[in-house]
Design a protein around this nucleic acid. Structure first.
Length: 198
DNA sequence: AGTGCGATTGACT
DNA sequence: GTCAATCGCACTA
């Protein structure tokens, strides 16, 4: 498993969201290494009313405006941290939300962090994903394509068919088909109906 | 300074 | 299946 170069990342938000399915997310901390296959993403594109960059750059969302391949981490509902990958050129605000992982390495550590043994629940859902991976607000702005502790890696195995659906949990722009997932993967979140869609 | 609400989760019927 | 918890942020005044 090797680090993905920035030049390998598609320079378009939707293409990147699809591209990241099957790739790996790795985090190395003092507790150990955790990694997982990315099995579900959502694109938050330029001009998207549901995107955090829609009203321009602020202190909170500035990482979304970094060139592609940087982490944007934010706190939501007073409960969860969510991880995005910035997706456009510097100064343009857009990103890809990582919604679910299939655990690969450090499963015991993930179980400890999540307080459950169920593999299927370790990183199914964007808030659970960050807990399992030990990702927090301190990782906001991290470059995922440099030699840092948090990085994107090449696929651990072949990627299955990629499905498309509407995004989950939003009210604005709710009918856009900007959610991507590996079909028939049990670590994907969402309802059966959503995940049947091609 | 006050207010409304959100890219969720876990508990509960 | 439904629903409350919880708090930082952005917007209004």
């Amino acid at each position: 498993m090797r680090r993905l170069r920035r030049s390998a990342l598609p320079a378009d938000t939707v293409e990147l969201a699809r591209y990241l399915i099957g790739k790996t997310l790795v985090h190395e901390t003092s507790e150990g290494r955790t990694s997982g296959r990315i099995v579900e993403t959502e694109a938050y594109i330029v001009g998207d009313a549901a995107g955090h960059a829609f009203r321009g750059q602020t202190a909170r969302n500035r990482s979304l405006f970094l060139r592609r391949g940087h982490a944007y981490v934010y706190f939501i509902y007073g409960v969860s941290y969510l991880l995005n990958v910035s997706s456009e050129q510097a100064g343009v605000g857009a990103g890809v939300l990582l919604r679910a992982l299939e655990p690969l390495q450090g499963i015991e550590l993930m179980q400890q962090r999540r307080g459950t043994l169920r593999l299927q629940d370790l990183a199914r859902g964007p808030g659970r994903l960050t807990i399992a991976m030990g990702v927090g607000i301190g990782d906001d702005g991290a470059d995922l394509c440099s030699r840092g502790p948090l990085w994107l890696g090449t696929p651990a195995r072949a990627t299955g068919e990629v499905g498309v659906s509407v995004r989950i949990g939003i009210t604005k722009e709710a009918d856009r088909l900007l959610r991507f997932f590996e079909r028939d993967n049990r670590y994907v979140s969402g309802t059966l109906r959503l995940n049947r869609i091609r």
